[in-house]
């Protein structure tokens, strides 16, 4: 399996290298989408990586798809690969047929019967051929597929300029409805794990740009990297990125059937914190040049500022994680918390 995940990441890297040029990324700013890139993704079935082989997928667990997702983020690719992967898993778990074209995912629960009612943000909604909707039903989810053609979106953008459209429906007709064995909490946790991997991908690039700049820009007769103050702030940011990467990779390894209850929140919290430091540091090192639209840095830092808040910001996941920890610590067993931190798997 580990070979396959690297092969997919390499394949993504090849496609992105050809199609996801800085011009293409800039052109998609302001709510755009690279349809050329998405066609290539579909031809290689990268968006179906987590489906079974019978459905044309690679049969990867979501954790194993993260190296590929990280690669898309390395390129600031203007396509919703993470949400499409998760949407396809939901449809498959609900036994619904996978549609053609871009699949988007509602981020909030809706009221679903034979029709849909409610409001949800839908990243890349305006570009989608179909949208996956969901509703909590006990420990599982009711899942539905919507044709957005007749729906009106209130168009919105996140700080990265990605389309985050508000879908508002009253009795909107559905193409199909099914039941998926996945809890709403797990769905949001998978989303958080995906965003953690994406954050790692953009952090890596922001840092690479900052290191390169520090090595080439000369002031006071020396490269910026000769100044210890610059070295140390870059190292601190690098340490943050390394920590986020370790947390995310561990969470991926531990989340085989279900998102791990400690590892996934920890990974999203750690990635959000790290990304904040990385963005601030990269901008400081790049000076005014990094504050321009012309320089590529903002394609990474604006994604940091958006993605750290999607699928739960640090505060939300910290509260959830802390509540679990508190319960384990207050059972009367002085080792209760440590027992939980070190259970098999996390060790």
């Amino acid at each position: 399996m580990s070979d396959l995940k690297e092969i997919l990441a390499d394949e993504a890297g090849r496609i992105l290298g050809n199609l996801c040029t800085p011009e293409a990324v800039n052109a998609a700013g302001g709510g755009g989408f690279s349809s050329a890139l998405w066609s290539a993704v579909e031809s290689s079935a990268l968006h179906h990586a987590c489906l079974g082989e019978a459905d044309g997928g690679a049969g990867l667990g979501l954790g194993d798809a993260l190296p590929m997702v990280r690669r898309f983020a390395n390129f600031a690719a203007p396509v919703p690969i993470a949400d499409a992967l998760l949407g396809s898993i939901l449809l498959q778990r609900a036994g619904l047929a996978l549609p053609q074209g871009l699949l988007a995912l509602a981020h909030a629960p809706l009221t679903l019967s034979s029709s849909a009612t409610g409001r949800s943000r839908v990243p890349y909604g305006r570009h989608a051929a179909r949208i996956v909707l969901w509703q909590k039903e006990g420990d599982s989810l009711r899942v539905a597929l919507l044709d957005p053609a007749d729906q009106t979106f209130t168009r919105g953008l996140n700080l990265a300029g990605e389309a985050i459209d508000m879908l508002e429906m009253t009795g909107a007709p559905l193409l199909a409805v099914g039941q998926a064995t996945m809890s709403a909490d797990d769905l949001l946790a998978w989303g958080a794990l995906l965003r953690a991997a994406q954050l790692v991908g953009v952090m890596e690039q922001a840092l690479a740009l900052a290191v390169e700049h520090a090595n080439t820009r000369v002031q006071f007769g020396r490269s910026l990297s000769a100044f210890q103050a610059v070295q140390h702030s870059l190292v601190v940011a690098f340490g943050e990125c390394a920590a986020a990467t370790a947390a995310m990779e561990t969470a991926a390894a531990l989340s085989v059937e279900r998102p791990h209850a400690l590892a996934v929140p920890a990974a999203k919290i750690r990635a959000g914190k790290a990304a904040t430091v990385v963005a601030r540091t990269a901008h400081q090192v790049l000076g005014a040049m990094g504050y321009t639209h012309e320089h590529a840095l903002h394609q990474y830092t604006r994604r940091i500022w958006s993605w750290r808040d999607e699928f739960g910001a640090e505060a939300e996941w910290s509260r959830k994680l802390g509540a679990q920890a508190r319960q384990h610590a207050q059972t009367g067993n002085p080792d209760g918390l440590w027992d939980w931190i070190t259970v098999k798997g996390i060790a």
Binding site: A247, L262, S318, L321, G322, R326, I346
Partner: peptide, 12 residues
């Protein structure tokens, strides 16, 4: 809870 969760994320 939020304080505790943020520390646990670090320890993890």
């Amino acid at each position: 809870d939020a304080a505790l969760g943020s520390m646990l994320a670090e320890v993890f």
